[in-house]
Amino acid sequence: MDRTVEVKFLSASIGRAFRKFFRSGSGKMAFTGAVILIIFLLAAVFAEQIAPYDPTVRSGKAFLSPNSEHIFGTDNLGRDMFSRVLYGSRIALLIAFIAVLIAAAVGIPLGLLSGYVGGPLDRVLVLIMDAVYSFPGLILAIAVAAVLGTGVINIAVSIAVVYAPTYFRVIRNQVSSIKSELYVEAAKAIGAKNWTILLRYVLPNVLPSVVVVLSMNLADAIMVEAGLSFLGLGIAPPTPDWGYDLSNGQRFILMNDWWMIMFPGLAIIVLVLGFSLFSEGLNEYLNPNVGERE
């Protein structure tokens, strides 16, 4: 085929795929999610430029309800709530991303190994991972966070412990079915090494589901992080953190300080919603008819 024709053909089919994606309900869902995520990412990156005040020092009277100078009001120490919510997206996204990366870095290789090798190793790993998976995630994270103590990495590790089994399960189950596909047989027949088969033939085929699990886990990780810091097991104050701000706001709830709990809470909801819509839409688009029953 002529090169220009080839390029034209390629761009047309990509265009068609995109149009189809955006017309479908799941595509719209994923797109809405992506827009929300981009807004939060920008807010986190440019927090210094956008925030009107330093989030950790007094910038007005304490307990001001929302007004033109402090659009989200101020907290009990006179700190600007809008700036705190804005900076809070940094910690939330940072910890969630690190946590999910650690979980994937542990869960994916173990899943590949377990599914490909099979046998007693597989059975033992499945048993362990299933046990951890069945345990209430937040409570496990609380236990780990309690012994590790505060700090970004420690909290990320506590959350990662909860989600590593998710990757393990997804990858392991796919690998053990891919293992018996013809192209793997063929690769074996031409004498490919096990490592080559795993990395070149198996891994690329399981990656799409990793993307879906990844963005679903980010939503959960943000929830768990907020929960941990609400319980006092998160980042040490005065670093702006939504969960901490919520527990701080709750202390004054009888004084009707609704703005101190409303805005950090809404921030969590919208960000988690962004991740959920994105992963849900993507999942439905990639595997229609799957996931309905779960």
Binding site: A219, M223, A226, G227, F230, G243, L246, S247, G249, Q250, I253, N256, W258, I261, M262, G265, I268, I269, V270, V272, L273, S276, L277, E280
Partner: peptide, 17 residues
Amino acid sequence: IFIYSVPVFWLGMVFQL
């Protein structure tokens, strides 16, 4: 999808309020 995104402690606080 929406209620899944709501932190349980935040919902509790809103009810308290």
